[in-house]
Each structure stands twice: as structure tokens, then as C-alpha cells.
């Protein structure tokens, strides 16, 4: 049996998968709240090549940058914003929201931030580090407009991706835990800031180069296995 041919082919498909994941990271390098992913592999049996063991997301903090949006928020620390759309709940680190007609804060895809409702006529919004939202309405009156709550999971790596920066809970990630923001050593809400993707363009480019070379090396393995098969077939010249 020509095991080398199949082993080298598993290597080619592994590098292809790495390229797919890195390309996706690069494509989302400017998406607010995006978390980079890595494809992982393990050896397959004895000298039979490699097998993909999954794609793991790294929830490392992205850089916070002042954005100047009227209701931009970012999480400085652990946790996710809890959002809801059509009765479905999701979790995100992307805090680019705007006031919708019904007073709720929504992002561009129509996900509503839970726990916050901005009264009509509010002209100035202020979010404290603990997530409490205060608005100023006509006449300078201050009003409480709710509180942003953060949610975290025992295993955020096992959340399911449902968009570039949107995640849904799964059975494996553990029950959602509400986090209190604004405490010492705890997460804080940064108002007027957005969290960048935690993708490093340079690292991604290096990963692409490495994957390309490894792909070529495995392709040579396929060629060598094929060439040996050809020679073996020519043994019998009649």
C-alpha cells in the first residue's frame, strides 16, 4: 500500500486548512471585536499523516481605541456584551451600538444590547466603568437608562461563532455567568472606545508563508510517492 501518498496528502489538506483560517483572520483584521482563530492538528495513527483537531479561537484582549461614536463601548477585561435579536441571545465583544427608534441600543445587524433603554429626547449619553448608563434629557435633567451587563463563560473557547464577532452559547462552554463590571481587578466598560480585532497582520503574513512552504513540501512528498509507484509499475517490461 502506498501509505506515503496518503500521509503527504493529509499534510497538504492540513496546510490548506491553516491557510483558510489565517485568511479568515486577515479578512477580519478590521472587524471590531473579532477574535483570531488557529487550526490545530494531531498525528494520525503510526506514520499515517495528520488530522485536524479543530479550530480554536483566542479570546485575548484586542487593543482599545477611542472611536468618538456616540454610543461606542468596549470591554476592558473578561466578558461579553449580551445582545438579543428575534428572541435569540448572543454574546459579543463588538460594542458599536446606535439608538434605534424604540429606544434600545442596536448594532448594525440589529442585535439589541440587553438592559439599556434610552428615553426619547436624550441628547447626552454617559456610560460609567461599571456599565451604568445615564442620559441627559432636555432641560439638563439626568436620568438613569439602565446598565450594561457582562456575561462570561467557563470555556469561552467553546462558544459557537455566528458571525464575524458574534457568539452563541453551546452545551460545552458552561452556563453563562453575569460579571459585575467596574470592580478592582475586574473587567471595566470603556465608553467612547472600540476593541480592535486581536489579529496581528505581521504574524498572519508569517503564518501564510510558513503554511505555503509546508504545503509545497507535502506536495513534493506526494510527487515522490507517485514517482516510486511509477517506477514499480515499470518493473515488468514483458
Amino acid at each position: 500500500m502506498n501509505r506515503a501518498l496518503y500521509a503527504a496528502a493529509t499534510g497538504m489538506s492540513a496546510q490548506q486548512q491553516t491557510l483558510d483560517v489565517v485568511a479568515d483572520n486577515l479578512a477580519n483584521a478590521d472587524v471590531v471585536g473579532f477574535k483570531r482563530a488557529t487550526a490545530t492538528f494531531a498525528a494520525l495513527g503510526a506514520d499515517l499523516g495528520t488530522i485536524a483537531t479543530g479550530v480554536r479561537r483566542t479570546f485575548e484582549q484586542g487593543k482599545l481605541e477611542r472611536s468618538g461614536g456616540p454610543f461606542d463601548v468596549a470591554v476592558d477585561g473578561a466578558g461579553f456584551f449580551t445582545v438579543e435579536r428575534d428572541g435569540q441571545r448572543a454574546y459579543t465583544r463588538a460594542g458599536s451600538f446606535a439608538r434605534a427608534a424604540d429606544g434600545t441600543m442596536q448594532n448594525a445587524e440589529g442585535w439589541r444590547l440587553e438592559g439599556v433603554r434610552i428615553p426619547a429626547g436624550a441628547n447626552k449619553i454617559e456610560v460609567a466603568a461599571d456599565g451604568s448608563v445615564r442620559v441627559e434629557i432636555a432641560g439638563g435633567e439626568q436620568r438613569d437608562a439602565g446598565r450594561i451587563r457582562l456575561t462570561n463563560f467557563a470555556a469561552p473557547e467553546r462558544l459557537r461563532s455566528i458571525g464575524s464577532a458574534m457568539f452563541a452559547a453551546t452545551r460545552e462552554c458552561g452556563a453563562p455567568v453575569t460579571l459585575a463590571a467596574g470592580r478592582a481587578n475586574g473587567p471595566k466598560i470603556a465608553f467612547g472606545m472600540l476593541e480592535h480585532a486581536n489579529v496581528s497582520i505581521v504574524e498572519a503574513m508569517m503564518a501564510i508563508l510558513a503554511a505555503q512552504r509546508a504545503y509545497e513540501a507535502n506536495a513534493k512528498g506526494v510527487q515522490a510517492a507517485d514517482e516510486m509507484q511509477r517506477i514499480a509499475n515499470n518493473l515488468h517490461r514483458g
Partner: peptide
């Protein structure tokens, strides 16, 4: 060749 090809496949 089987061994080398499998090693190459596991470079990552």
C-alpha cells in the same frame, strides 16, 4: 518515504 511523508504532514 512513508515515515518522512508522515513527518512532513505533522509539521504543524
Amino acid at each position: 518515504l512513508d515515515v518522512s511523508a508522515s513527518n512532513l504532514a505533522n509539521v504543524s
